[in-house]
């Protein structure tokens, strides 16, 4: 408050701030840890997003959590009903099966996407022809809207594949896998993977390019095979990128919605209903408070997962 930097203008804030920090440090005044004092202008930069985040995310979330303890249907009178909604959520086979489906789907998809994206990235950073053109081709799925992709694939699964199966006489192909209660999820994994591999691929390419060439040269001199190089050099050095991809991917797949709506609408039956789809019925079906309880539980679960993932990431960082 009393530093000479107090009335600094926005234009010179950064510079003066730095200088002020040094002065404080030299003088050994109130900043005991020796950290430079942060100029308030940075808080100003944060303010707009903080306000927007509070208004658009935090407040509605708190309102939603409050309503999960009522019997509100989205309109009209309501009463506090305690934890009735939460008890009902835990005994609802529909909600439990949607959690089972969504987590299973997310785990499988994370694995498929990262395995394929990593191998593709290795191939696309090695010495091959037409590298730039191939990279561009592989990124195309990322720019197409998920719902469009889903509808195109729906046609392929429902018409083209069975037609191909009929033409070649392959029995299992003649029935659409979208209509098979036990296999529809495979189609959803395939389409989601097709769409999200490019994103993971770009991160892996960036990771692979950041590995200095010298380590490979040294490995060559030591006579390491391609497999040993991949396992002992490439993988450990891109471990951070693998973790980023897994966390981002897992978080995204837990919110699966558009691809499923386009492909199966949660069917056949309720075999492929995701958590997000179930929550959304709260709005379309006038079951607002109940699904808010579901959403609150989902929020708590995702927070727990994020904390665990953060712990693991920190552990990795400390190791390297």
């Amino acid at each position: 408050m009393t530093t000479p930097m107090g009335p600094a203008t926005a234009a010179t804030g950064t510079l003066l701030g730095k200088a002020g920090g040094q002065n404080d440090h030299l003088a050994g005044s109130h900043t005991r840890r020796g950290k430079p004092k942060i100029d308030r202008i940075y808080y100003l930069f944060l303010l707009p997003s903080l306000i927007l985040f509070t208004l658009a995310i935090t407040v509605p979330a708190l309102v939603g959590i409050f309503y999960s303890f009522t019997n509100f249907i989205g309109f009209g009178d309501w009463q506090l009903v305690g934890i009735t909604n939460y008890i009902a959520v835990f005994s609802d086979p529909l909600i439990l099966s949607s959690y089972l489906f969504t987590f299973g789907f997310a785990v499988v998809t994370v694995f498929v996407v990262n395995a394929i994206a990593f191998l593709l990235a290795v191939a696309l950073t090695s010495r091959i022809r037409m590298k730039a053109a191939l990279r561009a081709v592989f990124v195309i799925p990322m720019v197409i809207s998920a719902i469009v992709i889903a509808y195109v694939f729906k046609y392929l699964f429902a018409n083209s594949l069975p037609a191909l199966g009929a033409a070649t006489g392959i029995g299992w192909m003649q029935e659409s896998i979208l209509a098979n209660e036990n296999l529809a999820w495979v189609a959803i994994v395939i389409v989601t993977a097709w769409q999200s591999i490019p994103g993971a691929l770009l991160i892996y390419i960036a990771g692979l390019l950041s590995i200095p060439g010298e380590v490979y040269e040294a490995a060559d001199i030591d006579g390491a095979s391609a497999w040993t190089r991949l396992r002992s050099i490439t993988l450990p050095l891109v471990a951070g990128y693998v973790i980023i991809n897994i966390i981002l991917g897992f978080k995204g797949y837990l919110n699966a919605y558009d691809v499923i709506v386009g492909l199966t609408q949660g069917g056949p039956g309720t075999a492929t209903r995701s958590i997000a789809m179930t929550i959304f019925t709260g709005f379309t079906g006038g079951d607002y408070a109940y699904q808010m309880a579901n959403a609150t539980l989902f929020f708590i679960i995702t927070v727990l997962i994020s904390i665990i993932q953060l712990r693991i990431t920190r552990g990795k960082a400390a190791l390297s």
């Binding site: 209660e181 609408q265 069917g267 039956g269 309720t270 209903r273 019925t281 006038g286 079951d287």
Partner: peptide, 16 residues
């Protein structure tokens, strides 16, 4: 009630 996915259940019956 719309929060019960009756149509999906019926679809499930129709497909086995």
């Amino acid at each position: 009630h719309l929060s019960i996915p009756a149509a999906n259940y019926i679809q499930a019956i129709a497909t086995g």
